[in-house]
């Protein structure tokens, strides 16, 4: 008669965590995210300093020369502490049809691009706060046009249908 082996001598297997399936899943997610990033063009991130309006357009954003229009004035689009180009009092000034600060910024930017050999395309991307008044907007558009930036791309939030 055969005896069952004593539990004392049984091999104790270590419970190891199998990471293979987890790795497969992570790889798929990673590839999907990288793919979606590459199809969304250059990085346009909504600024934390303003609230974008909602609109029905679905054109994918593409970042060119970027500026912000917030209730504090026109600012350079930067990740942290954006530099004020034209302050609110400059925009409020009724005699200012063209904003001197913004005009200087655009002229410098154009000259810088020319020096760097970047072809001038005359496009400016604007992130404008939804509460910004129309007369401020017109002044910015006029100034951009004066500096030969004829095409303006406004960044908006896609309307939730």
């Amino acid at each position: 008669m055969a005896y069952a082996p004593s539990s004392k001598y049984k091999k104790k297997e270590k419970a190891a965590l199998t990471l293979n399936s987890m790795m497969d899943m992570m790889t798929i997610i990673l590839l999907f995210l990288i793919k979606s990033m590459s199809t969304s063009g250059a990085m346009v991130r909504p600024s934390q300093y303003l609230e974008l309006p909602e609109g029905a357009r679905k054109v994918e954003p593409e970042k060119k020369l970027a500026i912000l229009i917030s209730p504090n004035g026109v600012m350079e689009d930067m990740e942290s502490t954006p530099r004020v180009i034209s302050p609110a009092n400059e925009l409020d000034n009724a005699s200012n049809v063209i904003l001197p600060g913004l005009e200087a910024f655009l002229t410098n930017q154009k000259a810088f691009d020319e020096k760097a050999g970047i072809p001038f395309n005359g496009i400016v991307t604007i992130q404008c706060d939804k509460s910004v008044p129309y007369d401020w907007l017109l002044k910015v558009i006029n100034t951009c046009g004066q500096s030969e930036y004829d095409v303006i791309d406004f960044v908006i939030l896609k309307q939730s249908s």
């Binding site: 992570m26 969304s40 990085m43 346009v44 991130r45 054109v59 791309d153 960044v155 908006i156 896609k158």
Partner: peptide, 23 residues
């Protein structure tokens, strides 16, 4: 991967924004 995926997910919020061309 655990670090990369949240970073990319944060960037993927871009799909909520669009452009309104004014010419």
């Amino acid at each position: 991967m655990v670090v990369l995926i949240p970073v990319l997910l944060q960037v993927a919020q871009l799909s909520d924004i669009a452009l309104l061309e004014y010419k």
